[in-house]
Design a binder for these strands. Sequence first.
DNA 1: GGCTTGTCAGATTC
DNA 2: AGAATCTGACAAGC
Length: 259
Amino acid sequence: MDKFVIKKNQVKSKRSHIEECAGHSDVGVPEESLTVKKSRCDVAAPLLEQSYVWRRIRADNLSCDYTSLFNKTEANEILQQLEREIVYFSGDMSKVQVFGKWHNVPRKQVTFGDAGLTYTFSGITLSPKPWIPVLDLIRERVKSATGHLFNFVLINRYKDGNDHIGEHRDDEKELIPQSPIASVSFGASRDFVFRHRDSRCASSVRRIEPVKVELAHGSLLMMNFPTNVYWYHSLPVRRKVIAPRVNLTFRKIVPQSLK
DNA sequence: GGCTTGTCAGATTC
DNA sequence: AGAATCTGACAAGC
């Protein structure tokens, strides 16, 4: 499948092109082979316009789109700002119970979002922190690249390659049905792995290859419906990674007034 | 009734 | 041959 370019002022029409192509027969093709070539806006693209080269990642009921959202200079600046300004949860808020045992989560987490929103985290209902300029800037860039406006972000900080997250799906009831999730990364590149729910244990009949994506500094990964219905994802340990990674997953939470 | 954002041990890969 | 990675087990509680 081709990479293709979207100009900022053409977001709507080109996005519909993405959707239109989403059902094509590239199902099950290894992700690497989907990347063929970059296309460029041919003539007279206005100089100041930002354009994005998207990589389509497709498998059986998996639909993701990947692009570089910030250049290296921008990404460096934003990472520094995030590292200065973001204060993560601590204490009980950084623990989780699995199979009856309590653990400290092997990463740091915090949430930001629109005033009045609430969400449930480890069984407790919480309000996200109010937006701050650096997060609003990232949110606006995501909107200009995708057309989607998000009202909530979960920030995960992985201090090095030993910090990780286990397999899970982002299938909270509080998400607007069928809304995409936008994952923006800064800092160390990390592997991100999808596994189909039907190929997770030896007993399962279906053999579906995992899909791996490397999430680079300044990148955006759009996870579109129905990816999260069928595919689990994880950020596995990578012992050789010594630098931190800060990841922001933007979501659309159902507003309190509609609950 | 079904699922689990955790770790760990043993198998497997590099 | 050792280190890194992968995979399944776990058996409590919401």
